[in-house]
């Protein structure tokens, strides 16, 4: 089930907005498609990322995939320490302990253009 309180991109990232902060991760569908995740590379805290730009990579045993920023802004926190030790959390808990970034939104209106849960469910059903 796709959590109803999140917004999504067609690239299978999710966003949870609280005030002007957005938490970012990849969806359960994406994690499942990638398979066993063994490596996550995230940007440094303090960096500014642009919406739609590559902000990192996620690697399964088989392959490397780019991560695309669903929203732009300054990276204020990352889950790097936890995901370095236990990248498999992206598979086991993609919407919780597998989170990746916390971004201070540059432009909150970017969020409203993202997919809601129903639209994202429809998207993955098509795949």
């Amino acid at each position: 089930m796709v959590p109803s309180d999140l917004r999504f991109t067609k690239d299978h990232e999710w966003v949870r907005v609280e005030g002007d902060l957005a938490t970012v991760g990849i969806t359960a569908h994406a994690a499942d498609q990638l398979g066993d995740i063994v490596f996550v590379e995230l940007p440094a805290i303090g960096r500014t990322i642009d919406q739609h730009a590559t902000f990192g990579v996620v690697e399964s045993v088989k392959a490397v995939s780019d991560l695309f920023a669903p929203v732009g802004g300054e990276v204020v926190e990352t889950n790097d320490e936890s995901l370095r030790a236990t990248p498999e959390r992206v598979n086991s808990d993609p919407y919780g302990e597998g989170w990746m970034l916390r971004v201070r939104l540059a432009d909150p209106s970017q969020v409203s253009a993202l997919l809601d849960a129903a639209a994202y469910e429809a998207l993955i059903a098509e795949e």
């Binding site: 398979g35 399964s60 045993v61």
Partner: peptide, 22 residues
């Protein structure tokens, strides 16, 4: 199984997961 095209064959790339199978 997740199936892939491998040398013209439809083959299983993984069932439960690569690490678990390994």
């Amino acid at each position: 199984a997740r199936m892939v095209d491998y040398a013209g064959w439809l083959m299983p790339v993984q069932y439960a997961g690569v690490i678990e199978e390994h």
